[in-house]
Structures are given as structure tokens and as C-alpha cells.
Write a protein that binds this DNA or RNA. Structure first.
Lengths: 343, 343
DNA sequence: CTACGCTTTTGCAGCGCTGCAAAACACAGC
DNA sequence: GCTGTGTTTTGCAGCGCTGCAAAAGCGTAG
């Protein structure tokens, strides 16, 4: 590979110093139109392209942010990723992506002190295997924005929807339909299951607010929020003597898995069992039946996360850690109100 | 932010030259156990971490590969991305991700001469808006692996399945079921629609091989391979006087959209219309009905693409451009053979 | 003509690491 | 003790860019 064109080559051809070329290329400082033009001509003539690596080293920054999520084949994250990339690009940042499979060690590696020093300037992180404590032990100098349910300790921003309120709203929707035995699929009663626990809380609140009993035995845990887990959990519920007549699923994937089981057993959705999901992924809108869901504003989440992260990266004094609540709304589809409802 | 620990700091503490520290850290050359140990102690004591940026600049490589795809919320790409990341990490590479939305300008930017020089060492690229010509005009020095249907011109590798054979197989499956009027959704009769055209070819071949007529008017084009387009195309087909009794969809998403429309009109899948998809995304396995599909070996595609790309990156003389055919198989599910078939 | 303030341009050092080739060392053989 | 060979360590230059501060240029005022 032959040597690439450098700033100095351009400088020589244009008859100016390399520093001036740099100024032109980056639009820094004042440059006379005459010089600017001369430089630009030389740049074109030689086909000069800045060496990003060298620039990064000199500036001590990488121009990259990392998005770290547990699973990429989860449509929710895929959709989010898309918006994050778009938002980052607007500000000239590239997105480095990684998937942790929820492995705590792997997750720690990303936020631990200097583990990947300078590969990225900041991280948008959706932790799964790390509890609050592990988060606190991180490299304090790394700009960080957390997605999902982890309360901010003041040193990072947290972006998410109000899980309790949203879950309550979802459950209330089922109760409004007159359902008597409402189940919940997705509880995770352990340290790393904060998000799930908040949803369970909302589920309970909806019942107690109406003076209804919570069917504790209808709350089913799942290790992950995917289709197979949803399908399995639903099978357990249907195997009972007194199966539920409605299910609040902690993700749309879980809901799709659950519906799959219900239909496979010859039961109808929503007539026999009404199902509501969470996340509003595209699949849910096109499935049969389409899935009623809680829709978080993903675009808002992505742009806000990027915005806050870049602010953190560029600030000399770290901004306070904010708790940012994204808007959400209930989208009613066939899985709770049946075909009739379709527009 | 205080100054970070550098190689020189470690060298000073350990009483050796910075070059020796470098040798120890990277496992280069011979180093006596005694020195090695002393250096390692110093590294730990100071909490030294190599500066990736500086290393990259000195080595003239970035340790990153880019994966450029048209859409990230397409499950097929999301699933692929996952495997690519895994394969790259094994070799110590990070994955930079970008989505082009199929925009030709944007796509060109990634492979044009030096546009992002050194940000990545090579690209795995799934072009959508670029035709063969535009591909040929790329920076010849950039290691490149193309996914999907673009014939290699010998300067890059191409990884994909045999679209014609797979499509023929899919169509034959429908004909085997005794269907008389088989439609196809997804044709793209223009320069950038090569993949679609190959599928249409397979569709035709299946008919002619059996001496059956191809219903040309049942071949419907779609700009994209997503649910809405599938739903719309299916609506057009059902609006006809003589609707089809089977449909070959050029992606699972298209199939899901089509099924959605069929069911919404009160028709049954597969009794009234049998549907087959392409890609084998997880959604298809859990939908109602589950979708019969052509399943490309994504893991094979991802690992092969990464492998070839890294080979290209590390070779001093560019290896020949290969045409690599990934295995694929037909997975029969409910959308063609009905519930009975389920295990 | 000199001084002054402003704009434009420059030179240099250095970001932190690695490639290269030379230097230092260690040890065996004569 | 000296030479030769192989191993270990070192010094230096340089990757290509930017930060900094000084230098040069330029126009106006005194």
C-alpha cells in the first residue's frame, strides 16, 4: 500500500504551512479567502483525506460512542439502535456496538476503569446482569447514560419510561375489559431484575387501587423477555385448573410467545385470554392477532440519550445525573379487544 | 481530567525502557522472566492501560471493521449483526455499525476512496441502492466483503445463498401442495434489484421445469421487503377476480404482512392461500400461523464474511475475490401445511 | 515614519505508541 | 582473555494530526 496523502503534502503544494491546511480543512480560525481557495484546490488535486486516527490521538478523543445492549436480535433494541445511530451521526459521532448477552463480566468490562480507553468517548448502556452496586464501581471518568430501570446515583443519566405507571395502565386496561383473573408474565425477583419488579409493582397497584385481589400465583417469572420464555410461561398458566382470562406480558416478545401457545391449544385471543404486551415492536402490530401494548417513545429515548451523553462528553464539569422519563402510551389492538376494534 | 498513565510512566517505575514495557504488554519478542515480572508489577501498581488510539496510529490500523446494512430494524440484519459481532470479537476486532436506509449516496460514502480513512480496516457491506457499476468504482484498497446478491468482480468476496435454487425450491414446495395459482411478492425489475430478480428467476424455473404456466400477472413488485409492503401487495392480489391460492414472498416480513392481510379479510392460511417466506427470522417461527420459509445459514454467512474480511485485511497481496455460497434449507411450517403439521 | 491593535499564518512540540536497527549483554569455545 | 553467536534491551524516529504561543502581515492613527 503506497503512502497516503498527508496534511504536509497538501501544505507543500499549496505553499502554506501544514497548520494552515488543518485550519482550512476543519474550518478553524480565520483564513483569507485566497488562501482557503488555494488550499482547497490542493486538497482536491491530491485527493487528501484527513487521517481520523491521527486526529483522534492529537485531540485525545475518538469521536465514537458505544451502545451496549444485552441482545441485538431483540427488536426493541434493534429499533432503538437505529435511532441512536441517526442521532449520533448528526453530531458527527460513530456508533460502536456491542452485545453482552447479559453476561455481568462482559458488561463490567465496558464500564470498568479504562478497559477500552479511548476507543469510545462515552457509553449508552442497557445493563442486564449488573446490579446497582456494580454500576457504582465503574470508571467515574467515563461519560455514561443508562437505559432501562436503574436509578441514577447522580453520576450518570438515566433514560426510561415510568415502568410502574405504564404497567399499572396496562393492567387497568385488562381490568376495564372485565377480566377477573389477570396473570403477569415476566417477573424477576432478584437483584438484576429491577425493571421487571417495577412492572410487577404496577400490576399490583392496578389491582389494589380497585380493591381487587392480586392473584399471586398467576405471577410467573421468566429469565428472559423473549418468545420461547413467553410460550413456556403461558403453557404453565394454561395447565392450571383455573387458568387466567387475561395476561400482562412484560414485553411484546413474551406476548407473542404467549399468544402462540394459546392459539396452539385451540383457545382464542382475546375471547378466552386477552393479552397485552410492552415495548411496541413492529412485529406486534402485524401479528395475528395484533398485540395491544405499552408504547415507549423510542425516538425520544434515543435522541435524549445521545444528547445527554454528548453533553457529558463535551462538558468540562460533569453535569448532574438526571432521571429522564420518556413519554409512553397505551396502544389498543386486537389481542385485547378483538377484531371488531380494527379500524 | 488528570493525565493518564503512559508506557513511559510504567517504564520509569520498572526501571526499563518504554520499548520493553511495550514488548511485555503485547507479548512481543523475548523478555526475561525477571524483567517481565517487574514490568507487570509496575503496570498493575499504576493501573496502566494501553491507549488504543496511539497504538492504532502507530500501527496504521484501527482494529475495527464496519458492518453496513440498509436497515437495522429488519430482523434478518439484526440476527446477522449479532453473529458478526461475535465472530469479530474473537479476532479482537470491534464492529462499527451503520445503516444506510438504502440511500445510494450514503452507501457510496462508505466504500468511496478514503472517505473514512482508517476508521475501519474493512467493510462488510450489504448494498441496496448501489448497482454493480457503483460497486466497481470503489476504493480498491479497501478490504470488502459483500452480502446479498452482487456478483463479485474479483476484487472483493461475495457471501450469499444460491437465490435461484432456493427460490425454485420454495416455489416447488407450493406446487407440490397442488396449488394452481402461485403468486410471487417482491420482484424488483431494476438495476438495484438483483437479489429480487434472482428469486423471480427461481420462481419461473420451478414452473417451467414442470411444464406449468407462470402467471405473470401474479408477480407483484415491492419497493422494500417489509411488512407494510407485503400487506399492500397481498391486498392487491386478493382484490383480483381470480386471486392466487399460494404466495411466494421474497422475505419473511413480506410473508407476515401478507398473512396479516389474508387473515384480516377472513380468509385462512394455508387453506385458502398458502404462504412461504424467505430468511427464517424468529418472528416467523412464532407467528400465527408459523411461516414456512427458506432458511439461510446466518451463522455461516456471518463467520465466513468476517473470516474472509480479516484475511483480506491481513494479507499483503490481495486474495482472489471469491463467490461463497452459504447453505440453506426449506423449513416447513403451518403457513403451507397447516396446523396438522405441527410437532 | 512609527506605533498599535487586529487578523492571519507559522513553527514546534507532543498525543502514546510501535518499527527498526543498533547496542548491550550473556555465554560458549578457543 | 578474546571472539563469535544468540538473546535481551534500548534509542530514536515517526505515525499525521492539533494546541499553543509566537511571528508576521496589515491597516489605521498619531
Amino acid at each position: 500500500m503506497r503512502r497516503e496523502v498527508t496534511l504536509r503534502d497538501v501544505a507543500e503544494l499549496a505553499g502554506v504551512s501544514s497548520r494552515t491546511v488543518s485550519n482550512v480543512v476543519n474550518g478553524y480560525a480565520n483564513v483569507t479567502d485566497r488562501t482557503k481557495e488555494r488550499v482547497q484546490r490542493a486538497v482536491e488535486q491530491l485527493g487528501y483525506r484527513p487521517n481520523v486516527l491521527a486526529r483522534n490521538l492529537a485531540q485525545g478523543r475518538s469521536g465514537q460512542i458505544a451502545l451496549v445492549v444485552p441482545y441485538l436480535d431483540t427488536p426493541y433494541f434493534a429499533e432503538l439502535l437505529q435511532s441512536v445511530i441517526r442521532a449520533a451521526r448528526i453530531s458527527g459521532y460513530n456508533v460502536l456496538i456491542d452485545q453482552t448477552d447479559g453476561d455481568p463480566e462482559h458488561e463490567r468490562g465496558f464500564i470498568a476503569h479504562g478497559s477500552r480507553r479511548l476507543l469510545f468517548d462515552g457509553v449508552i448502556f442497557s445493563p442486564l446482569g449488573l446490579d446497582q452496586q456494580a454500576l457504582a464501581d465503574r470508571d467515574p471518568a467515563l461519560p455514561l447514560v443508562i437505559l432501562g430501570e436503574r436509578t441514577s446515583d447522580g453520576t450518570f443519566d438515566h433514560v426510561g419510561i415510568d415502568d410502574v405507571a405504564a404497567s399499572r395502565q396496562a393492567t387497568e386496561h385488562l381490568l376495564d375489559l372485565g377480566r377477573q383473573r389477570v396473570a403477569a408474565i415476566g417477573d424477576q425477583p432478584y437483584a438484576t431484575g429491577e425493571a421487571a419488579q417495577l412492572r410487577t409493582r404496577g400490576f399490583r397497584e392496578a389491582h389494589t387501587a380497585r380493591g381487587l385481589p392480586v392473584h399471586e400465583d398467576l405471577i410467573i417469572g421468566t429469565p428472559r423477555f423473549n418468545r420461547p420464555d413467553g410460550a413456556r410461561a403461558m403453557a404453565r398458566l394454561l395447565d392450571r385448573e383455573d387458568p387466567p382470562d387475561a395476561v400482562f406480558c412484560y414485553s411484546d416478545l413474551v406476548a407473542l410467545g404467549a399468544i402462540h401457545t394459546i392459539v396452539a391449544r385451540g383457545l382464542r385471543v382475546p375471547e378466552d385470554v386477552a393479552v397485552i404486551g410492552y415495548d411496541d415492536i413492529e412485529d406486534g402490530a402485524y401479528s395475528n392477532p395484533s398485540v395491544t401494548t405499552i408504547s415507549p417513545d423510542k425516538e425520544w429515548i434515543a435522541t435524549t440519550a445521545v444528547e445527554r451523553l454528548l453533553l457529558r462528553i463535551t462538558s468540562s464539569t460533569p453535569p448532574p445525573g438526571l432521571e429522564l422519563r420518556a413519554p409512553h402510551r397505551l396502544i389498543v389492538r386486537e389481542s385485547t379487544t378483538g377484531r371488531a376494534r380494527r379500524g
